[in-house]
Design a protein around this nucleic acid. Structure first.
Lengths: 232, 232
DNA sequence: GTTTTGAATATTGGATCCAATACTGTTAGC
DNA sequence: GCTAACAGTATTGGATCCAATATTCAAAAC
């Protein structure tokens, strides 16, 4: 029996990658702010080399933008971007759900239901970050059933693009309650094996959140939160 | 007047990136073969650092796969992958064409027509690599009209995934003739401002090429072409 | 003959150092 | 007062070196 669960990242770049992703999601690295290699490296106790490689991955995924000799900036989302992201999610999530249905059985339906419960648990605990991750686990438990890796990957990228702004959505109790209800509706549709209803539920769920993100976006320029600021 | 057009890459990593992309498209770096950092660095006259950063970008884009301490392999396409790629192209290209139509005017229709002519020119010249790039310019001249950058980017990634195999398609004169006819049909649909016909033309065009790629894929395991082999 | 151990080799991962470029603030010129 | 040249600083880009890990292959144990 191996102790595979305790596996710390085998490379420093992976550790950096994980940490920077966290900083991006939590908003410690706010959109528009420069990402300083030295500051990140020092904070994580590594040299700049693994930092640079991790940043390249994030560049390839579109989370940060790069200019030669000027470095990296956290990608900013324009309203046009947001509209595009949600249009693409509309198309691709519908496809994912459609493709997932033939693979839907009692086992993975239970898993999905448990994932929804985990969202609620994080809510009870008042763990905002936990809600975000649990919410994603819930939705991708369904999407990944489609067994279409590229589709899953693309969807994850689209989700990532708005994650920075989604935090504000979960901050309001009213939104959290609505999310709970919408998750229940989606699960009910899955129980009834009703594809179109599931797709509609997902679409409604998505449309409700886009409004919140759009508002967060148009509201005055985002500022770096109080925490660590690798910009300086 | 500046000589901006002659701008060589401002960084070595970009030069490496360009070159590796070329190697991937031409098949010099065949699917499944390892990508050796040292060999690439030596060939391009740089150290391993910019090579590693370029490879990270390609990893982020899914062109090569990475395992810690074992390095990079050129991503292989399974038949399942291929089916997925074309299903996603089906969805996304239809969306791109739909979104492009409102922006379609005489100016960019002329540009698209010229791009189609460039494909034929490359054909007359017997320039197989030229056909591939001109073909892509033609199709993305239309897709990019949608003014949906993420959609364009995703489509490019999907095209990239099969580019390695598409070379064999253009190798046959019969296929090249068919491509010409299909391009003409697509342009005719654009001229008539007939969205559905354009989408159908694109779908037929795509379906014809997928069969060829599928065959190339199922045919015995791909081997590295005669050229440079960075695998050793 | 098969499996296992271990040393030698190949390859990748990371740290440090130096070079190249961009940015900032100051001063000189008008 | 405004602009332009310039020096100093900050930051990124790249090369070299060493460490860590994986692979290979031969020899020993069973």
């Amino acid at each position: 029996m191996t102790a595979a669960h305790f596996s710390r990242p085998p490379t420093a770049q992976e550790a950096v990658l994980t940490e920077v992703r966290r900083l991006l999601v939590t908003g410690d690295l706010a959109p528009g702010t420069p990402v300083r290699q030295e500051a990140l490296a020092e904070r994580l106790g590594v040299s700049r080399v693994p930092v640079r490689e991790a940043l390249k991955v994030l560049e390839g995924e579109g989370h940060i933008v790069y200019t030669a000799h000027r470095g990296y900036l956290v990608a900013e989302l324009s309203v046009d971007d947001l509209v595009e992201v949600y249009r693409l999610r509309d198309l691709l999530e519908a496809e994912a759900i459609r493709a997932a249905f033939p693979h839907l059985d009692d086992t993975n339906l239970t898993a999905i239901t448990n994932a929804a419960r985990a969202v609620d648990d994080a809510d009870w605990r008042g763990d905002l970050a936990g809600i975000g991750t649990a919410n994603r686990v819930f939705h991708f438990a369904l999407f990944d059933l489609a067994a279409m890796p590229r589709l899953s990957r693309t969807l994850r990228q689209l989700w990532d693009a708005t994650d920075v702004y989604r935090a504000v959505y979960f901050a309001e109790a009213r939104n959290r309650a609505r999310v709970h209800d919408e998750h229940m509706e989606l699960i009910a549709a899955l129980h009834d094996r009703d594809v179109e209803r599931a797709i509609a539920a997902q679409a409604a769920h998505r449309d409700n959140s886009v409004a919140a993100v759009r508002e967060a976006l148009t509201r005055s320029t985002p500022q770096a939160a109080g925490g660590f600021d690798p910009a300086r």
